[in-house]
Every structure is written in C-alpha cells, then in structure tokens.
Amino acid sequence: MRDGTRRPERPLALIDVDGVLNPYAAPACPPGYREVDLFPGEEPVRVRPGHGDLLRRLETAFDPVWATMWERDAPRLLGPLLGVQDYPVIEFGAHVPGPKLPGVRRAVGERPLVWFDDLHGASAALWAARRRAPTLLVPVDPARGLGHGHIDEAMAFAERTATGTIGPWTA
C-alpha cells in the first residue's frame, strides 16, 4: 500500500478430505454423494459435487489450503471433481500417517485460520488456544461431511477477524 501500512493477510482455510469432504463413517453413501473409485483396490471415495460451491464460497474470504494426508492427491483427484482451483497443499512428510499438527504448525506461521477436520484432537485444541493469531477449529462429523453450517461459521469468523472484533482464539 502507498501509505506504508501493511494490509493484513487473508486467513487460511485448512481443508481435510476424509471425514470432511468424504464422509467415510456413514454406514451407506449419504444422499447427494456418489462413490468414486479413485484408488484402485481401496474403499471408494464419497464425493458430493456441491462441495465445490461451498469451497468456492470460502475463497471469497480465505486462502484455501489442502490439509489432508492425501497431500498432492487432493488437488489432483478431487479438485477436478469439485471444480475448484489448485489450492496449495500442506506437506506432512515424515509425519504421515501420524498427527497433522506438526505439519500444520510449520505451514501456517502466524496467519489467522479456520481448520475443517474430523480429528483435531486435544493437541490441536491446545495449540489453537495458545496461538496469537485468530484460530477456529471446525469439527466435522465424519458420517455427515461438510455442510452449509460449517461454511457459515467460517464466514462469520472471517468477518469478525477482518473487523477486529475477535480475540486471539475461538473454538
């Protein structure tokens, strides 16, 4: 900016796949989803095309990032099915298949964020509580997947973050 002030960075939206976009815990494929064989010899992935609209809504206020053990398979396989752009990917490296928190911590720095996951865990909640940057953990039921209410919650968080009416952490 010309006046020498820095524009704050947009918050990140960390997006998990299994449990969030793929409701693996549902006993049968939920209405609105279809099963797709993305990994030969493994369980089919449940995909809801409407998730693309939800993710594009997030793009208006957040910088979306894949935060999934799928790593580069998420944009390669799901991006085209959902019609979303090629979001960056958090590389978990040596932590796969373990807790995501070390990789998330390395990737996000001090940016505000919302994190959609079905398995945040106590360590993620503690980390979020201690962060100086506004942080919202959005738990998603792995039998139902991501819905409009989750996105509404994130958008309200983004608005409060942008206007400065939010503290350092919210759960």
Score class of each variant (00 low, 15 high):
Gly50Trp: 00
Leu78Ala: 09
Tyr24Ala: 10
Leu77Ser: 07
Glu110Ile: 02
Leu82Cys: 14
Arg46Asp: 14
Arg57His: 02
Glu42Phe: 12
Pro49Leu: 05
Pro31Trp: 02
Ala74His: 00
Pro75Tyr: 01
Tyr33Met: 11
Pro23Val: 02
Val114Cys: 15
Val47Cys: 12
Pro30Lys: 09
Arg105Gly: 01
Phe116Val: 05
Leu78Thr: 04
Val84Tyr: 01
Asp117Ala: 12
Pro49Gly: 07
Asp86Arg: 12
Pro75Asn: 07
Ala67Arg: 01
Leu78Lys: 04
Gly103Asn: 09
Pro102Thr: 11
Leu54Gln: 13
Leu101Gly: 09
Val96Asp: 11
Arg48Met: 06
Arg57Val: 06
Gly98Asp: 10
Trp127Arg: 04
Glu43Ile: 04
Tyr33Phe: 15
Gly41His: 03
Phe39Cys: 12
Arg57Met: 07
Gly19Cys: 02
Gly19Ser: 08
Leu38Pro: 15
Ala25Ser: 08
Asp118Lys: 03
His95Pro: 00
Gly79Thr: 02
Lys100Asn: 00
Arg72Gln: 12
Val96Thr: 15
Arg34Gly: 10
Glu42Met: 11
Pro97Ala: 10
Leu58Ser: 10
Val104Leu: 08
Arg34Pro: 05
Val96Cys: 12
Arg72Glu: 13
Val89Pro: 03
Pro99Val: 03
Trp115Cys: 11
Val114Ile: 13
Phe39Ile: 15
Pro112Asp: 08
His51Val: 04
Ala25His: 02
Pro99Leu: 09
Arg57Glu: 15
Arg34Asp: 09
Arg46Ile: 13
Pro30Gln: 08
Leu21Tyr: 09
Val45Lys: 14
Leu81Met: 05
Thr60Pro: 00
Asp118Gln: 06
Thr60Ile: 01
Ala107His: 13
Pro99Gln: 07
Ala125Leu: 13
Trp127Gly: 03
Ala26Thr: 12
Lys100Glu: 02
Val84Phe: 02
Leu126Cys: 11
Arg46Tyr: 10
His120Phe: 06
Leu77Phe: 10
His51Lys: 05
Cys29Gln: 11
Glu59Arg: 06
Ser123Asn: 09
Val114Gly: 04
Leu81Pro: 11
Glu59Cys: 09
Pro99His: 08
Gly121Glu: 05
Leu21Pro: 04
Thr68Pro: 09
Tyr33Gly: 10
Gly121Ala: 01
Gly79Trp: 06
Val36Asp: 10
Pro112Ser: 14
Trp115Ser: 08
Pro80His: 07
Pro23His: 01
Ala74Gly: 07
Arg48Thr: 05
Arg72Cys: 02
Val84Ser: 08
Gly32Phe: 05
Trp70Ser: 10
Gln85Arg: 15
Glu110Met: 06
Gln85Tyr: 00
Glu71Met: 00
Val108Asn: 01
Pro30Phe: 05
Arg72Asp: 14
Leu55Lys: 07
Gln85Asn: 12
Thr68Asn: 06
Asp86Lys: 04
Arg72Trp: 04
Gly121Lys: 08
Pro30Asp: 06
Pro40Leu: 07
Gln85Asp: 15
Pro88Gly: 07
Ala28Met: 07
Pro75His: 05
Leu101Met: 11
Val104Asn: 08
Gly50Leu: 01
Leu101Ser: 02
Phe39Lys: 00
Arg57Gln: 13
Gly83Met: 10
Pro97Gly: 15
Pro30Arg: 08
Val108Trp: 04
Leu78Ile: 07
Gly79Pro: 13
His95Tyr: 12
Gly52Pro: 03
Asp63Cys: 07
Leu82Gln: 13
Thr68Ser: 15
Phe62Ala: 03
Leu38Gln: 11
Ala122Gln: 14
Ala122Asn: 10
Val96Ile: 15
